[in-house]
Amino acid sequence: MRAETRGRPGKGGLGVGRVWLLALRDLRLEVRDRAGVLSALTFLAVMLFVMALALGPEEGALRRAAPGVLWVALAFLATLLSTRAFALEVEDATLDDLLLTPGGKEWVYFGKLLFQMLLLLPLSALALFLAAGLFYLPLEKALTLFLTLALGGLGYASVATFYAGLLARLRGREVLLPLLLFSLVVPVVLAGVRATVGLLEGFPVAEVASWWQLLLVFDLVYLTAGALLFPLVMEG
């Protein structure tokens, strides 16, 4: 337990340092292992490819389907990553050690969430480029599109982290997680798809911005609910 104090350079009671420490440790493990990141990456590429094959080859149809496909791919990817976030912890039976660390349990939630976002952000940028190639997505708006994906990804991951933690010790979690998750995050996907469509079809900025606001509100609600409920269900 002594090592843990190193990662907590007196940044108040929240333990922001701990959160970063946990996220970076997970990231390092994930990068060293390679299998996890590589499989996520391959999954993303293959999925976009298959979707393009299924919906193509007309340019118009592909272009119209792009926002939906992008968000579905992102949703699957985030589910995959959230399972990864707790898989090693359970394999090595270290989850209890983490939860027993004095000073609340919220930081475990935020650490796992941060780890997912650190992986999800580059991967969603990559997804944008892949979609640009396969779905004729215009890249002029890549930055605003990326912002939309980041906002939606955060909302998605905040619910996914909570559920993945909850289900971490259960058998059959791979089936249960998407089942519980997808019905709950419909609002995020809807708002995300609409914002993306708005950007691609050149709607006025005010209209897209209102979707961003909505996404931001969802993020805050889910993040707060997840952080509040996580310690309650992870006890013991």
Binding site: L184, V186, V188
Partner: peptide, 19 residues
């Protein structure tokens, strides 16, 4: 946890679908 999150989700879903 599912019971709580699921119900919090009701106004959120309604709003997003409406828009």
């Amino acid at each position: 946890a599912v019971g709580v999150l699921g119900f919090i989700n009701v106004p959120i879903s309604y709003m997003s679908v409406k828009w």
